[in-house]
């Protein structure tokens, strides 16, 4: 059953289709699954205020969203990574900062990690808590799946071209990484800073905690931007939606959801 389901899903994987709708204006936003929940929230509130607008938010990943925008298949792309040089002809609209927090179990005495140690952990050079001056026990390292925007951001900011050890456990969402760390006193993983809660502890990197202020000023090292991407200066409904996202209500909505806003 699992196989058949997986194969049908594989076969059904399609591109990004502009939505058919009865509303007067419609807008399709596609891309990063990290941005998706926030974009959905923004779209939901925006549609409440503008009943004639219909906004479809689709996932697919940053690269798929950027590709869809550049060939005109959707109006706005959502990206949780920076544009590469080949994509620089597109217009990027930063909408928020997101920190990547390194998390451990609350009972773990670890409070600070040097960036080099974090890299050594994820390359597999450090495998025991003893190496970090804690009681000896093997470290249960958790990473995200290949292709995840969070993993991509983590690799580019931490790993310095080195590969993440194949011994690391792999989970396919921020939520399940957090769930495992919350239950396992010997584990260490990384998630979006907006999703850290009381069940896990975020450690400081090079002495700086992933607080809202430290993310905003970039004092904290592991910060990425969430972008909306458009083919040209957006007009009409796309511009109105972008203006809403960058307006005070839009930004405070993102802050309420755990991100750090771009504009005051």
């Amino acid at each position: 059953m699992g196989l058949v389901g997986g194969l049908i899903f594989l076969a059904a994987l399609g591109g990004c289709q502009p939505g058919k709708t009865g509303a007067q204006h419609s807008l399709v936003v596609a891309g990063s699954t990290s941005v998706q929940p926030f974009a959905e929230k923004l779209a939901e509130i925006y549609m409440q205020q503008h009943p004639q607008m219909r906004i479809d938010v689709q996932g697919g990943g940053s690269s798929a969203g950027i590709y869809a925008v550049s060939n005109g298949a959707c109006d706005l792309g959502a990206s949780s990574r920076e544009l590469v040089p080949a994509e620089k002809h597109l217009l990027e609209i930063p909408i928020a900062y997101d920190g990547i927090a390194v998390i451990v179990h609350p009972s773990n005495p670890l409070t600070n990690l040097r960036l080099e140690d974090l890299r050594a952990l994820f390359t597999g050079k450090i495998t025991d808590w003893r190496s970090l001056g804690l009681p000896p026990h093997s470290i249960h390292l958790i990473t995200r799946e290949e292709g995840s925007g969070t993993r991509e951001a983590f690799e580019s900011m931490v790993m310095a071209q080195q590969e993440i050890t194949p011994a690391a456990l792999v989970q396919d969402s921020n939520g399940s990484v957090r769930e495992i760390v919350a239950g396992d006193p010997h584990s260490l993983g990384y998630i979006s800073a907006g999703l850290v809660d009381h069940r896990v502890k975020a450690v400081a990197i090079d002495g700086i905690t992933p607080s809202r202020d430290n993310i905003k000023t970039h004092a904290y090292k592991l910060v990425r931007r969430f972008l909306l991407v458009a083919r040209m200066t957006p007009g009409g409904p796309a511009k109105e939606f972008v203006d809403f996202v960058l307006s005070a209500p839009g930004q405070s909505l993102l802050e309420a959801e755990g991100l750090v806003g771009m504009v005051e």
Partner: peptide
């Protein structure tokens, strides 16, 4: 995990898991 398992307590990734985990992106 992607490593060849060395014990029954080691984490493993099966063929089906690999497809479903990474397909999205």
């Amino acid at each position: 995990a992607l490593k060849l398992p060395t014990s029954v307590l080691a984490p493993v990734r099966t063929l089906t898991s690999n497809i479903a985990l990474e397909l999205g992106y």
